[in-house]
């Protein structure tokens, strides 16, 4: 009697038994035909697989920057002179039309409304002076040691009852220094855009003239005059 002995099937991980064909796959009996395996598809590159996110990334960055930049327009933009709305030479009228939020301090009817301030300003003269005129209400002001004083003459035209609060008349030097940025007058006047005897911040006449005095460094080379009302809009007057 002949006994057929079937060789044990080698399990996975045991390696190829001695004497087995080297091309035989684990778990297959000798003589078996391996199934046709599908050829692995060529894998797409990282850029192709993430194309959607790559397109969305700059949009997300722009959205994040916009959302986190609210401080620019909430705190920086409204305070200070950032937007030049007109640029003229000495003797030419500069037109400024800008809206501001009125708290009703001068005209109660305007409280909590947005008001359009339209005003024409002409710088008619700027000169260095040796002495300051006596103030209307206080003691004489001396030009401090190490400073020079300038007088800036401006002609304004606007509808009466135009609010010129926070008026600024600034001299800008060639190196960028800004002289007279404060809206407080050197001689103690309440408003630099109104005559010294004016009360409040409202214009009374359709046209009027003012002289504003400010201090500068002796070696400053003044190149511009800027007029504004706290910002962000302002006008520039180039000096010859």
């Amino acid at each position: 009697m002949t006994t057929l002995v079937t060789p044990a099937v080698p399990g996975p991980g045991r390696g190829t038994p001695p004497g087995a064909a080297p091309s035989l796959q684990p778990g297959m009996l000798p003589g078996s035909v391996p199934p046709d395996l599908p050829a692995p598809a060529r894998r797409r590159g990282w850029w192709r697989r993430n194309i959607v996110w790559l397109v969305l990334l700059p949009i997300a960055v722009a959205a994040a920057a916009g959302a986190s930049s609210f401080r620019v327009w909430a705190y920086w933009w409204p305070v200070g002179l950032h937007h030049e709305v007109d640029r003229v030479s000495v003797g030419e009228p500069a037109h400024m039309a800008a809206e501001y939020y009125d708290l009703g301090l001068s005209v109660p009817e305007r409280a909590n409304t947005t008001v359009l301030r339209e005003i024409d300003a002409t710088v008619t003269g700027i000169e260095q002076v040796e002495r300051l005129p006596p103030p209307l209400y206080s003691d004489p002001v001396a030009i401090p040691d190490g400073s020079v004083a300038y007088e800036v003459q401006v002609h304004f035209a606007a509808e009466p009852q135009t609010d010129v609060a926070l008026c600024q008349i600034i001299l800008v030097a060639e190196d960028g220094a800004r002289y007279g940025e404060s809206n407080t007058d050197l001689l103690g006047g309440p408003n630099r855009c109104l005559p010294p005897d004016a009360e409040g911040s409202l214009s009374e006449q359709p046209e009027w003239d003012v002289s504003s005095f400010l201090l500068a460094d002796p070696d400053a080379e003044i190149t511009q005059v800027r007029l504004g009302f706290g910002g962000p809009e302002y006008v520039t007057v180039d000096l010859p």
Binding site: R131, L132, P134, P140, A142, I143, P144, D145, G146
Partner: peptide
């Protein structure tokens, strides 16, 4: 305030 005036200052 302003420093004490010296020879350079002038009074209006």
């Amino acid at each position: 305030g302003y420093p004490p005036a010296s020879a350079g200052g002038s009074e209006g």
